[in-house]
Protein backbone atom coordinates (compact mmCIF):
# COMPACT_ATOMS: atom_id res chain seq x y z
CA UNK A 1 0.00 0.00 0.00
CA UNK A 2 1.43 3.33 -1.01
CA UNK A 3 1.31 6.39 1.23
CA UNK A 4 0.31 9.20 -1.09
CA UNK A 5 0.79 12.80 0.06
CA UNK A 6 -2.34 14.64 -1.04
CA UNK A 7 -1.31 18.30 -1.54
CA UNK A 8 -4.44 19.35 0.39
CA UNK A 9 -4.72 16.71 3.13
CA UNK A 10 -1.24 15.29 3.62
CA UNK A 11 -0.19 11.64 3.53
CA UNK A 12 -3.05 9.14 3.23
CA UNK A 13 -3.41 5.48 2.31
CA UNK A 14 -3.48 4.58 -1.36
CA UNK A 15 -6.97 3.10 -0.91
CA UNK A 16 -8.35 6.64 -0.52
CA UNK A 17 -7.21 7.56 -4.03
CA UNK A 18 -8.14 6.76 -7.61
CA UNK A 19 -5.69 6.86 -10.45
CA UNK A 20 -6.00 9.18 -13.43
CA UNK A 21 -3.09 8.17 -15.62
CA UNK A 22 -0.71 10.50 -17.42
CA UNK A 23 -0.93 14.15 -16.35
CA UNK A 24 -1.46 17.08 -18.68
CA UNK A 25 -3.04 15.41 -21.65
CA UNK A 26 -5.11 18.26 -22.95
CA UNK A 27 -8.00 18.13 -25.37
CA UNK A 28 -6.86 19.03 -28.89
CA UNK A 29 -7.10 22.76 -29.48
CA UNK A 30 -8.58 22.33 -32.92
CA UNK A 31 -10.26 18.91 -33.00
CA UNK A 32 -11.21 19.29 -36.65
CA UNK A 33 -7.58 19.55 -37.63
CA UNK A 34 -6.80 16.04 -36.37
CA UNK A 35 -6.62 13.09 -38.74
CA UNK A 36 -7.33 9.52 -37.62
CA UNK A 37 -3.73 8.88 -36.64
CA UNK A 38 -3.61 12.02 -34.50
CA UNK A 39 -6.93 11.08 -32.83
CA UNK A 40 -5.54 7.62 -32.10
CA UNK A 41 -2.54 9.26 -30.43
CA UNK A 42 -4.78 11.50 -28.37
CA UNK A 43 -7.20 8.77 -27.28
CA UNK A 44 -5.11 5.64 -26.92
CA UNK A 45 -1.43 6.47 -26.63
CA UNK A 46 -0.05 7.40 -23.23
CA UNK A 47 3.44 7.48 -21.84
CA UNK A 48 4.37 4.27 -20.05
CA UNK A 49 7.76 5.06 -18.56
CA UNK A 50 9.88 2.83 -16.40
CA UNK A 51 11.05 5.46 -13.91
CA UNK A 52 9.59 8.88 -13.13
CA UNK A 53 6.04 9.46 -14.34
CA UNK A 54 3.96 12.63 -14.12
CA UNK A 55 0.45 11.43 -13.40
CA UNK A 56 -2.92 12.44 -11.98
CA UNK A 57 -4.57 11.14 -8.85
CA UNK A 58 -7.86 12.05 -7.20
CA UNK A 59 -8.33 11.91 -3.45
CA UNK A 60 -11.77 10.36 -3.86
CA UNK A 61 -12.29 9.33 -0.22
CA UNK A 62 -10.87 12.61 1.12
CA UNK A 63 -11.00 16.12 -0.26
CA UNK A 64 -12.16 14.73 -3.63
CA UNK A 65 -9.74 16.96 -5.47
CA UNK A 66 -7.52 16.06 -8.40
CA UNK A 67 -3.80 16.72 -8.21
CA UNK A 68 -0.61 15.93 -10.07
CA UNK A 69 2.16 13.69 -8.79
CA UNK A 70 5.54 12.59 -9.99
CA UNK A 71 6.01 8.96 -9.01
CA UNK A 72 8.70 6.41 -9.67
CA UNK A 73 7.08 3.44 -11.46
CA UNK A 74 9.80 1.03 -10.30
CA UNK A 75 10.03 1.88 -6.58
CA UNK A 76 6.48 3.37 -6.46
CA UNK A 77 7.90 6.25 -4.42
CA UNK A 78 5.99 9.51 -4.84
CA UNK A 79 8.62 12.12 -5.51
CA UNK A 80 6.46 15.22 -5.53
CA UNK A 81 2.86 16.35 -5.64
CA UNK A 82 1.23 19.61 -6.57
CA UNK A 83 -2.30 20.93 -6.94
CA UNK A 84 -3.76 20.78 -10.40
CA UNK A 85 -2.51 23.65 -12.51
CA UNK A 86 -1.12 24.75 -15.80
CA UNK A 87 2.47 23.76 -15.13
CA UNK A 88 3.30 20.33 -16.54
CA UNK A 89 4.75 18.42 -13.59
CA UNK A 90 6.47 16.08 -16.00
CA UNK A 91 8.50 18.84 -17.54
CA UNK A 92 11.41 18.40 -15.21
CA UNK A 93 10.32 15.82 -12.65
CA UNK A 94 13.58 15.72 -10.71
CA UNK A 95 13.35 19.42 -9.87
CA UNK A 96 9.66 19.85 -9.17
CA UNK A 97 8.47 20.61 -5.66
CA UNK A 98 8.97 17.98 -3.02
CA UNK A 99 5.99 16.43 -1.32
CA UNK A 100 6.50 18.61 1.79
CA UNK A 101 6.66 21.69 -0.38
CA UNK A 102 3.47 20.72 -2.07
CA UNK A 103 1.39 20.62 1.09
CA UNK A 104 0.58 24.30 1.11
Amino acid sequence: MMLIPCPHCGPRNETEFAYGGQAHVSYPEDPHALDDAAWARHLFYRENPKGLFAERWVHSAGCRRWFNAVRNTITYEVQSVEPIGPRPPGGRPAESTTSEGGHA
Partner: peptide
Protein backbone atom coordinates in the same frame (compact mmCIF):
# COMPACT_ATOMS: atom_id res chain seq x y z
CA UNK B 1 -3.18 -2.53 -9.30
CA UNK B 2 -4.56 0.72 -10.68
CA UNK B 3 -1.29 2.53 -11.40
CA UNK B 4 1.46 2.04 -13.95
CA UNK B 5 4.14 -0.07 -12.26
CA UNK B 6 7.17 -2.13 -13.15
CA UNK B 7 8.05 -3.28 -9.63
CA UNK B 8 6.68 -6.85 -10.02
CA UNK B 9 4.77 -6.20 -6.81
CA UNK B 10 1.51 -4.52 -5.86
CA UNK B 11 -0.52 -3.39 -2.88
CA UNK B 12 -1.51 -5.77 -0.11
CA UNK B 13 -5.04 -4.33 0.02
Amino acid sequence: DQYVGYGQRGGFH
